[in-house]
Design a protein around this nucleic acid. Structure first.
Length: 885
RNA sequence: GGGCGAUUAGCUCAGCUGGUUAGAGCGUCUGACUUACAUUCAGAAGGUCAGGGGUUCAAGUCCUCUAUCGCCCACCA
């Protein structure tokens, strides 16, 4: 046996093997627990273009833990997987690949280009899915969806038509976020603002009637001055009172513009006079409408200056800026330049600076959709974890703005709006092409060219992923949503609105928002920064379980994760610890088996009931610790405190079960009680650890049972599992004799008193383990029977012997070498002082009427006991001090 | 301009509804090749819990102010 199990755990030998096994046996299917209460999670669908990064790894590990946990708890657990067609991102990728053939998408035409996208998807689209499998994700892959699937697309169109019929969809000319590189409109959420180091340029605009006089305006975007149609000042501004209504000559283009007044102008900013460019700024647009100014667009969709820009035509907007500044300088119309930081929108796909652009787009009216969604969170039907995110959500929802949903790209759900070519202006929304125009009956009908925002399909995800009604009714609303804070607005908020609008019910009950994964310096991991730690590389090097454990262990609820590669060593080491503890137990179970076949005991069919008193102290101790660990793990999983749950298991298994318990029983490992308890705890620990570390636990489980059954579908270890069962008669024959008389009594476990805990430690003073055990095994046994057992730590070092029993109740064990007596004395003195001070405060407290009146009884008792202990401790310390003299 | 988070051991961080002696991992130091594991084991050192004020019998934990860092939102030309 020893030869069969390698000394080190090698994830590569197990991971792919067991994943395949799980898949082949359909263990990911919700039907593993048919008809039970459903527990559903829908995956945040990664982009088809996606490659697994640490954020995914964390996100999906959390979901997998929840799903595996609930599955083991016996629920019909469904993890619904799929991918997102990611309109702009995917189109960009495919455009890049065809660019290698010297082609643009326009060369291919819409249809051919979309064919190419599908072809690309077929070839590369499942990369991220394969990577999720590497991670161990137990999704029900049979149900995998794509947001461009036929049924899904139907749902998207239906949703659009429903909103249209309610009058919630409209078309309008507005200044929207335009990405000149992707050449499409973007929603406000898709154009995050980022600080930009820039300048404030002070430009002189001369008067028409007095070319030597001028007014100075300040701007951050001088290139837009070509489209200016006014200069505005605040009506209260005394400086400009006399100038209002005057005509200016716009430099470079020599167009006449007027000075107007409006209260929105901030007198304190710049010169208090602002150039008005209605076509290129949302504020100016409003001013333009209000004052009926001209709208002159000077920038083309590709970010280059257009024909209205005269000599600057075809220059890139930023190049034009420089040239314009040069020209103004030459004409002495550039007064000064001040450094100025401003924030500008950036395309969330290609990071190009957004151009505010006037164009006709489709919008969704959001206010009425937001109302019930706000209520749902306020009333607690949907809970955020951690709760603080609810505020962020509510703040956004309460200030919601209309959603620009049209995109000028090809890859996506084409807007189901149809135009009659005969009687213009007649737009109809319909899932299918209308046979004829509802107004004039013409059959000359054309569909809108634009596609919908990707998120217009994502927001339907929690229900549109279910193909048939039965499933939808059964699994919706889903249970938990696990996601990152970045997409609360993009996705979470919109799903809540969509769920309530289209399904008349919330899409999920809990939203767990985990932190963002950052590098050691706190920067977000990104390709461009080159600070990526590739999860696949970690899996390759340390194993998927190590990756999963480490990620979970360092992720405090909702806090950002600062990651460095070394962190994964902890996970790897833990996996190895589990491996070796199991190896040790397997080895010893077999040796003890004495059966010709040498098989290890398998579960069930023999149930033996023990009375707590029948077990020795070490066994009682470890069992009580184990059950309280399980309790904590369960509790913390329910509360989304994954790091707590993980570290409880870690601490118990490593530092209590391995370091203490296994060391204690080593000396008497053939003892049937010890055999049983170590076996039982291992077996249950594997189950409890399985959601966190699925591969290694499966491998060991299989080695333990040879049954071909999977740990995946075992039950989560029951909290009050007070039955200890084993079935190997070979091992248990001796035990049976012992327990015959007490067979049907229940084992009542409780938490052993602290003193017992310490006594357990006394059993193994590692350095002299053998001697201690040999010399004192008899004494230990008798000591274990003692109710009160304490260790007097100060004797540890002074005693020259390994261990000795001091008075009746104290054991002393020297743990390491010689000590400096003088220092030791000092220490004892300070300790005594500390203890005395403590006693003082405690006595004060206990003499305090307020305390006695208000503190709960148990606390008073505790305090009294503490005082007593302190007094005892001080006596001992003094004794030690005297002894040292 | 609003909102949120962070500040705890040398480093990175836990510490949930206030209540034993404030914990872990890594690092450092001292020991140990012990019949599972050196990806190990035993032990040690190391903390006025950012600072001021307050509430309480009791504060790392609640309130308030301040400082520093970080994040998000916002039509500051």
């Amino acid at each position: 046996m020893l030869d069969e199990i390698p000394k080190q755990y090698n994830p590569k030998d197990t991971e792919d093997k067991w994943y395949k096994f799980w898949e082949e046996n359909n263990l990911f299917s919700a039907k593993v627990n048919p008809g039970k209460k459903p527990y559903t999670i829908v995956i945040p669908p990664p982009n088809v273009t996606g490659i697994l990064h640490m954020g995914h790894a964390l996100n999906n590990t959390i979901q997998d833990i929840l799903i595996r946990y609930q599955r083991m708890k016996g629920l019909e657990a469904l993890w619904m997987p799929g991918t997102d067609h990611a309109g702009i991102a995917t189109q960009n990728v495919v455009e890049k690949t065809i660019a290698k053939e010297g082609l643009k998408r326009q060369d291919l035409g819409r249809e051919k280009f979309i064919e190419r996208v599908w072809a690309w998807k077929k070839q590369y689209g499942s990369t991220i899915i394969r990577q999720l499998k590497k991670l161990g994700a137990s999704c029900d892959w049979e149900r995998e969806r794509f947001t461009m699937d036929k049924e899904y697309s139907e749902a998207v169109k239906d949703a659009f038509v429903v909103l249209w019929e309610k009058g919630l969809i409209y078309q309008d000319d507005k200044i929207i976020n335009w990405c000149p590189r992707c050449q499409t409109a973007l929603s406000d959420e898709e154009a995050p603002h980022r600080e930009l180091q820039s300048n404030l340029y002070y430009l002189k605009y001369p008067f028409k009637d007095n070319p030597d006089g001028f007014i100075v305006v300040a701007t951050t975007r001088p290139e837009t001055m070509l489209g200016d149609t006014a200069v505005a000042v605040n009506p209260k501004d005394k400086r400009y009172k006399k100038l209002v209504g005057k005509t200016l000559i716009l430099p470079l283009v020599n167009r006449e513009i007027k000075i107007i007044t409006d209260v929105v102008v901030d007198m304190k900013f710049g010169t208090g006079a602002v150039k008005v460019t209605p076509s290129h700024d949302p504020n100016d647009y409003a001013l333009g409408k209000k004052h009926r100014l001209g709208f002159i667009n000077v920038i083309a969709p590709d970010g280059k200056m257009n024909k209205n820009a005269g000599d600057y035509k075809d220059m890139d907007r930023f190049e034009a800026r420089e040239v314009i500044l040069e020209d103004l300088k030459e004409k002495r119309l550039l007064e000064k330049v001040e450094p100025h930081s401003l924030s500008a929108g950036h395309c969330y796909r290609c990071h190009t600076i957004i151009e505010p652009y006037l164009s006709r787009q489709w919008f969704v009216r959001m206010e009425s959709l937001a109302k019930p969604a706000i209520e749902a969170v306020k009333k607690g039907r949907i809970k955020f974890h951690p709760a603080r995110w609810a505020k962020v959500y509510l703040n956004w929802m309460e200030n919601i703005r209309d959603w620009c949903i049209s995109r000028q790209i090809w890859w996506g759900h084409r807007i189901p709006i149809w135009y009659c070519l005969d009687c213009k202006n007649a737009a109809m929304a319909s899932a299918e092409k209308p046979v004829k125009c509802i107004k004039c009956g013409s059959t000359d009908i054309k569909q809108d060219e634009d596609v919908l925002d990707t998120w217009f399909s994502s927001w339907l995800w929690p229900f549109a992923t279910f193909k048939n009604k039965e499933d939808r009714q059964y699994f919706y609303p889903t249970s938990s949503l696990v996601t990152a804070p970045e997409i609360i607005f993009f996705w979470v908020a919109r799903m809540i609105m969509a769920g309530l609008e289209f399904q008349n019910d919330i899409p999920f009950k809990d939203v767990y928002i985990h932190g963002t994964v950052r590098d050691v310096e706190g920067k977000k991991m990104s390709k461009s920064l080159g600070n990526i730690i590739d999860p696949l590389e970690i899996i390759n090097e340390y194993g998927a379980d190590a990756l999963r454990y480490s990620l979970i262990a360092i992720t405090a609820q909702g806090q950002d994760v600062y990651l460095s590669k070394e962190r994964f060593e902890q996970g790897r080491n833990f996996a190895n610890k589990i491996w070796n503890a199991s190896r040790f137990i397997l080895m010893n179970l077999e040796n003890a088996g004495q059966s010709p076949s040498g098989t290890v005991p398998a579960r069930t069919d023999l149930c033996v009931f023990f009375k707590k008193e029948e077990l020795n102290l070490a066994n009682r101790w470890i069992l009580s610790r184990f059950y309280s660990t399980l309790k904590g793990v369960g509790k913390n999983l329910e509360r989304y405190q994954f790091n707590e749950a993980a570290s409880l298991l870690y601490g118990f298994f490593w530092h209590e079960f391995c370091d203490w318990y296994l060391e204690i029983i080593k000396a008497d490992i053939q003892n049937p009680h010890n055999q049983m308890v170590m076996y039982k705890i291992l077996e249950k620990s594997l189950r409890a650890m399985h959601p966190f570390m699925p591969f290694i636990t499966e491998e060991l489980w299989q080695r333990l049972f040879h049954e071909g059954n999977s740990i995946m579908v075992q039950s989560w270890p029951h909290l009050q599992e007070d039955i200890i069962d084993l079935r190997s008669e070979k091992i248990m024959s001796e035990v049976l004799e012992i327990i015959t008389g007490i067979r049907n009594m229940r084992l009542e476990l409780d938490i052993l008193p602290h003193a017992d805990n310490i006594a357990a430690k006394v059993f193994t003073a590692n350095k002299h383990k053998r001697e201690v055990l040999e010399n004192f095994s008899g004494q230990i046994k008798s000591l274990a029977r003692l109710k009160q057992l304490t260790i007097l730590s100060e004797y540890k070092r002074v005693s020259g012997e390994f261990a000795s029993v001091v008075k009746d109740t104290h054991i002393v064990i020297p743990l390491s070498g010689v000590i400096d007596l003088k220092k030791h004395k000092e220490k004892i003195t300070t300790k005594i002082k500390k203890a005395e001070a403590e006693i003082n405060t405690k006595e004060k407290m206990l003499g305090d009427k307020n305390f006695l009146k208000r503190a709960p009884g148990e606390i008073v008792e505790k305090e009294k006991e503490k005082l007593k202990n302190l007094k005892e401790q001080i006596q001992k310390l003094k004794g030690v001090y005297d002894a040292l003299k």
